[in-house]
């Protein structure tokens, strides 16, 4: 299906000047992928510690609405991003207290977090519908942004896009090269063994959950501050869930998370462009594509049970109480 869409888009492209179309398309793919990179990387770290947080959607929405309020009230972009981050982390703290402190089921608590986040963000944001904001400023990198084609595509973005590149590298380095990353993986793979050696399992999980929440908050903030940029109820439109699927798709590896996010960003933008060109296919069918693609890749990856079992954190979804 994806191939036919690509083929179709290419046929349409013949009629236009390639570069004029391609550069904006590539830029929008990057902006569509960035929130997925943040949310999925954050969730991946949470899952690596052995905790499944299904509340990504709720945390993203809270990040989106609070970030938007902060920026429109103070016109400080830094503050907006920080507020979005803190809102996501704050939401994840509720989850962490319930799951780690009160031993609540992770799946149910995550669902509750999403339902709560959808409601609370709608409540907070009720006065914001229709408020305009021009979007966070672009920061072209001197010299590099002057390179034809590559310059505008890669080096004329806002701080959050660059940040998503940096954070991917950092997370990858953290998991593979640092002692702390090794401990995080140990906690996720066998909390009993990690506890027996003397690692503070609960504390590490708190940190991992908070990191996931902060990243989801930034992802939401990116949606309301750069991608759209405005606030509408439920504006994440399932991106939090797509991020969850991406983690499985990437078999818990940061590089593949990044790749997967761009795959989905690409599909999202491709269908938007096809819609704009009047593809003759109803817009709703096009809008289904990202969701259908999520199911498709999930099925494709999960088919290999051994691979999933080998790569997924062994303790995922299990609660841990030190006395047992």
């Amino acid at each position: 299906m994806c191939l036919s869409v690509i083929g179709f888009a290419l046929v349409q492209l013949r009629d236009f000047d390639m570069i004029d179309i391609l550069i904006p398309a590539m830029i929008t793919i990057i902006t569509a992928s960035t929130p997925l990179v943040y949310a999925a990387l954050g969730e991946m770290i949470t899952e690596k510690s052995g905790v499944l947080n299904l509340g990504v959607e709720g945390m993203m929405l809270m990040g989106a609405v609070t970030g938007f309020i902060a920026v429109t009230q103070t016109s400080s972009v830094t503050l907006g991003i920080l507020v979005a981050m803190c809102a996501g982390a704050g939401m994840s703290l509720i989850f962490a207290v319930l799951v780690l402190g009160f031993q609540a089921t992770q799946v149910a608590t995550g669902l509750a977090l999403t339902i709560f986040g959808i409601g609370l963000s709608a409540l907070i944001g009720q006065g914001l519908v229709g408020v305009a904001y021009e979007g966070i400023p672009k920061l072209p990198i001197p010299l590099l942004s002057d390179i034809p084609f590559i310059g505008p595509v890669l080096f004329e973005h806002d701080i959050l896009v660059y940040g998503s590149f940096v954070i991917t590298v950092l997370v990858s380095w953290f998991l593979r090269k640092t002692r702390a990353g090794l401990i995080l993986r140990a906690v996720g793979d066998s909390h009993d063994a990690a506890h027996a050696i003397g690692y503070p399992v609960i504390k590490i999980r708190y940190l991992a959950i908070l990191f996931g929440g902060a990243m989801a908050g930034i992802a939401g903030g990116y949606l309301s501050l750069a991608y759209s940029p405005l606030w509408i109820e439920n504006m994440s439109a399932g991106r939090g869930w797509i991020a969850l699927a991406l983690v499985v798709f990437a078999t818990w590896r940061p590089g593949r998370v990044f790749f997967g996010a761009y795959l989905f960003g690409g599909i999202t933008i491709l269908q938007l462009h096809a819609q704009a060109m009047g593809a003759g296919v109803p817009s709703q069918v096009m809008s289904m594509l990202p969701y259908l693609a999520t199911i498709f890749v999930l099925v494709l990856i999960s088919r290999d049970q051994k691979k999933i079992k080998m790569n997924s954190p062994a303790c995922i979804g299990q609660s841990f109480h030190p006395s047992t």
Partner: peptide, 10 residues
């Protein structure tokens, strides 16, 4: 073996 949470939600 695909996770029913994600597929049913999508």
């Amino acid at each position: 073996n695909a996770n029913e949470i994600l597929t049913s939600l999508m």
